[in-house]
Design a protein around this nucleic acid. Structure first.
Lengths: 295, 295
DNA sequence: ACTGTTTACGGAGACCGTAAGTATC
DNA sequence: GATACTTACGGTCTCCGTAAACAGT
């Protein structure tokens, strides 16, 4: 089970085709076919259905392992590379939309500590941030999510990064000001299982997280998907009645929008800092500034 | 950075010698030397000091990644293998000494669900249990440790297993009945930083865990190391005045031994169940019995 | 001098590309 | 019949073993 076989296996699954994966990897189709055949004969299972190309049960399981393994291999190389080169004064911060606000103060502290710092901030979807920090694409990550108080987020459990709590804030349900529940002093998420929700996983709390928090398998039906986007768009969509959203209290200001604190279950909006195993001097200064006054 | 190169790298570091690693892996020394040279030229760093053989800084970092990667590769193969074969009615339970008590009831439930079950329990040191569950050496693991209430243990963070809480119990300091603190109603661990402690990490709370809980870097000096062993031995050693130990309240009964509850910091003795990604029918029954009445 | 690592060299095998074969849409 | 995967075959390159050189202890 060689790592480069796993690499092409993952590429084939992602591309949905042997030939497309071959183009992507710079091989011929035949080579890819042989590599998959070799993996399958090694493991004595068929990993892929052909026509259309789609992982079998065993293939899906292998994929669950292959992606973290490849991520970790990239992370290892990246860490060794960083160790060799001189410590550059560079700080690429990647932050999820609702976590980005925390970057400002810490970035200022890092620039104070290193005046010639070459710094940059990018707002990104939560999903890839852990992996990017692990593989050196980012020097620092800021992610957010909902969790029970003091519980860790574990956004990318397989990425070899250190996570530290930055802040925890109460949550609120955003709803149109005219909504019958808008005047309530507080809400229980479990009473909103049957409402219609905005599906904006990059900005608001993702619906699966709400289901988990409420302890239900179904419910929190999406009314409108909103990929990417920013807080203002989500606020406008909620105000326009497209669906509800769970946001940190005080995050969304918009005419026609009301906010009701979440009373139960006991969950909070949590922000975490993701650091590589060997953060450079600037990363250390950044993270020290953020975790000094944490929670 | 091929996985089999990582394999020999890890073997060389562990063996402390190229030739010993070669014997272990069934290669010649020359082959091992070439493999290490190939790794080093690939990463453009020297990974090992020679004579004596010892990892460099970069080698140590690589090792941090290599071991989880190899573990995960073994876990992947094991999971695929298990998927192919018919689901055997076999249940190998591995449990840390203070977690083993929980096995009895759940094992009974599993046997009730599967009368022809081939079951076995082994008491093991905490350390390898997660890896053994991931790689199929065990079907179920039971580990224990100290943590803040409701906080997860994460004993083998890199092993791809699912962890579930089984129980949380208050902690107590075990000390000789004649000890001046034995009559106290409760103790703060931070007041015992300068005491002498029994270093019995397989049974009692490991001293590094106590340091972490108390928030100190030093202290909790070991008086006597006690590898392996069982609860009775630890109790006898404590009663004989060799040092203190932190145990779950009520665990140690021994003449001449006193137990004082830990009042602060707020930590508990927590037991967790470790399951592979695809537990067999018996493992499912076992884990259902244990997590049904959890906490 | 001895133990242990590196380098040199040769053969077996792995791996990929070309090209022909085969199955599915 | 066209598209896409598989199989066959040959060349190249990798990788390991043998053997000799080399370096610490």
């Amino acid at each position: 089970m060689d790592s480069h076989l796993l690499r092409t296996f993952v590429a084939v699954v992602r591309a949905g085709s042997f030939s497309a994966a071959a183009r992507e990897l710079g091989y011929t189709q035949a080579a890819v076919s042989q590599q998959i055949a070799s993996l399958e004969s090694d493991l004595k299972v068929t990993l892929l259905h052909r026509r259309p190309v789609r992982p079998t049960e065993a293939g899906a399981r292998l994929l669950d392992h292959a992606e973290p393994i490849l991520l970790r291999l990239r992370a290892a190389r990246s860490e060794i590379d960083r160790l060799g080169g001189a410590p550059r004064l560079r700080l690429r911060v990647g932050a999820a939309p609702l976590a980005a606000a925390h970057a400002a103060g810490a970035l200022a502290a890092a620039r104070r500590a290193h005046p010639r710092l070459d710094a940059a901030v990018r707002v990104l979807p939560r999903a890839g941030i852990g992996a990017a920090v692990a593989t050196g694409g980012l020097d620092i990550g800021l992610v957010d999510g909902i969790a029970a108080p003091t519980d860790p987020l574990r956004p990318d459990a397989d990425a070899p990064v250190t996570a530290a709590a930055v802040a925890e804030r109460p949550l609120a349900v955003a709803l149109p000001a005219a909504h019958p529940l808008a005047s309530r002093p507080g809400l229980d998420l479990r009473d909103l299982v049957d409402a219609l929700w905005l599906d904006a996983p990059d900005v608001a709390a993702p619906l699966p997280d709400l289901r988990r928090a409420a302890g239900v398998r179904d419910g929190f039906r999406p009314s409108l998907a909103c990929a990417g986007g920013d807080l203002a768009l989500v606020a406008a969509l909620v105000a326009a009645g497209h669906g509800l959203a769970v946001l940190p209290a005080g995050a969304a200001g918009h005419p026609g929008l009301a906010e009701v604190p979440v009373r139960a279950p006991r969950v909070v909006h949590r922000t975490e800092l993701l650091c590589p195993r060997s953060p450079g001097p600037a990363g250390t200064a950044f993270s020290a500034a953020l975790t000094a006054d944490a929670i």
